[in-house]
Nucleic acid binder design. Sequence first.
DNA 1: AAAAAAACTTGATCTGCATCAAAGATTTAT
DNA 2: ATAAATCTTTGATGCAGATCAAGTTTTTTT
Lengths: 234, 234
Amino acid sequence: MTENQTSKQHSCAIGSSSASCMELLNSQELELLDSKMVEVSYRKGEIICKQGAPATQLMIVREGLVKIYMESNTGENLVLHIMPEMNIIGLSSLFEGNNTYQFSAQAYLDTRIQVVDTATFKQLIRSNSSFSLKVIGLLAEYNTVISGRFYCLTQKQTYGRFADVLLCLANRIYKQQKFPLHLSRKELAEIAGMSVESVARILTRFKEEQLIELECKHLNILDYNRMFEISQKG
Amino acid sequence: MTENQTSKQHSCAIGSSSASCMELLNSQELELLDSKMVEVSYRKGEIICKQGAPATQLMIVREGLVKIYMESNTGENLVLHIMPEMNIIGLSSLFEGNNTYQFSAQAYLDTRIQVVDTATFKQLIRSNSSFSLKVIGLLAEYNTVISGRFYCLTQKQTYGRFADVLLCLANRIYKQQKFPLHLSRKELAEIAGMSVESVARILTRFKEEQLIELECKHLNILDYNRMFEISQKG
DNA sequence: AAAAAAACTTGATCTGCATCAAAGATTTAT
DNA sequence: ATAAATCTTTGATGCAGATCAAGTTTTTTT
């Protein structure tokens, strides 16, 4: 009996692929890229790009962790995506008639970014079909990530969404069941799309039920299976 | 004084671009495509592809209107996207490790679809860089559409979302302020992400306030500006 | 044309979660 | 070390919108 496919959705904001598309470029193309590219470093918390600004360049994350989010009039942000290294910010402005960023980006950690103008990037796409195919793959993956989050934040309720976030941190970022919880309650709330108070309540509940252990800023998922179950049930 | 960029978001499920990427193919490539392609017709309401099924092919919408949605265990669907002709279903399965569709597709109207296998499609991407760039543009646009909907369905409340839907129908589909309302309340509810009862209540309210007129299945937006305002305020 | 089924409307109730409020813990500044 | 500021927890309240229920209209079937 196969599990219902629809239950596989999770709100993890991080994609699973990792290979860089840059390694598909030949030396000549790399040279072009190098000559056009600028490297910029951001400190934790700094804004990398701003919703509404002209989208003339792409930003390649070389190191760090970046939050891609939409700002709302109410000051509450919607996190679309979290990007570790080897991801590209701004691919969606490669479509005609999209001359401004529809999102902002902020560094979660100290982050190193390579900036290229869209024209150069398009030139690389034209000249190298493997590169182009890889970019399509990346965009396709971003689509999948956002759709998954869309589903979870609209269909699951708070406990399921929060379980998702914990599993995402464990699986995609730290790759172990015990990990340091650098993110504040506010940041967790933002990712899970809920209020800070809800996060606090859910955490205490999870502790009570011995699903997790939380000491000296380290979170340990004690019962992975039940956590997974909660994330699935919604 | 420029308007806040964030207020420009709308939950319209339909993109704005229209040009086909097929017209960028040369005669040889078109020949290859023709030899590999199969055309299938679907009646209104029929399922075109199913979430969880192996994603081995792409479907080009040549005529009609298609709903792209995610199914949930509760039977409530999440509409990701509505595609008129010249759109491609399944581009997001062009990413490695994505071997099943993460969505279902259903014909809103009688629809004509051209089916191509992913391998052939990838071959075309490799051989024709303009085509490839256009595909990237399409994917980027889909990203934008889904992000916009994601924002609206999570940040706006029912009246704003419903105003969005009416404006989307008027602007993107019928291209006039008075249009036939073929969609049932249930379908409208699904698109706007709310219950059927809420749709009914909002419609009567809009009629009371003389924002719209609804007679013999034709909806007329009487006060476009206020409708727009409502959609913005959320 | 009558009966059955489906779609729509309207009011009443319920509920998940946000918001408000206030106390306790931790971090930062002095 | 002490004070100030920020973050976190916990309880109380409020509300948007879902669900429930029952009646009305429209469509489909026979």
